[in-house]
Design a binder for these strands. Structure first.
Lengths: 139, 139
DNA sequence: TAGTATCTACTACGACATGTAGTTCAACTG
DNA sequence: CAGTTGAACTACATGTCGTAGTAGATACTA
């Protein structure tokens, strides 16, 4: 359960998340501050401590998790990019009452590219195949 | 074209938008600062000028539009709640590359209530009936 | 073992967004 | 004309984020 906002990421925060996400497969144990600094800090001319501060804050916001590795911390993303995105979308939608939500979804689709719509349909179909029950009425 | 972020609204900003949205039908000409203050400011013990400042800033961010009415301004929401929500959702999704986007959509659906899914399906059907072309391949 | 490199923890500071409001001045109302 | 209303401008506090320095502990190396 996130304690702080956890929504909108800053530019650097996002870059750090990207780094953690893209290296998650190759490094499931996570990345140290040094590694993250090398990956996204050096090219931006940032100090090592800057990345330390940012990672520390992100841990407090539950955006990343950390585990001790010797005297260093290893950071991993707390959610996948897809999860975070989905969460953010739900958060946005969640501010709306039922009837408006429907309207927002319609708008959303209206402004979607055909590809997105296809993706959505595919995702719906996929979901359908896993849970054949429409669920109507199951609150 | 919005000049400033225009995303995440503050609490008061949101309350103001709510007020403008919910009274849009009854007052298409918009609302004056005084009216908005009476509606959302008084109960919070806010000064009239506070609402003035906030509305002024919101106008600069293109969240609201304003038109002169005598020497006062009349404010109207620049987008409907549904539009703004949809916009925000697209903004979130837009940060993702195609393959991740698909995954995010799947997650999104996964975490949706059956009601939301139904709404989405209905919206899709509605869209379908307006634009029978699937669009696949049309970049 | 002394010296250096490496890490964390803590502190700090500027920029920007937002909530909050005062002051100043013009215009309108009796 | 006096009081009221409203806009414009300015200001200040708080919170977030980018940025980084310093202090102190630990590990490595010659």
């Amino acid at each position: 359960m996130p304690s702080t906002p956890r929504n909108r990421l800053g530019d650097l925060e996002r870059a750090v998340m990207e780094e953690l996400w893209t290296t998650a497969d190759a490094h499931p144990e996570g990345r140290t501050v040094r590694e993250v600094h090398d990956a996204v800090g050096v090219e931006r001319g940032l100090a090592y401590t800057t990345l330390m501060t940012v990672l520390d804050r992100m841990a407090k916001k539950d955006l990343v998790r950390r585990e001790r590795d010797g005297r260093a911390w290893r950071y991993t993303a707390a959610s996948t990019r897809a999860e975070l995105t989905s969460e953010s979308m739900h958060h946005t939608l969640g501010e709306l009452a039922g009837d408006t939500r429907r309207s927002a979804l319609l708008h959303f689709l209206d402004e979607s590219t055909p590809e997105e719509i296809d993706e959505l349909k595919a995702a719906l179909a996929e979901l359908e195949s896993r849970q054949p029950d429409t669920g109507r009425g199951t609150v």
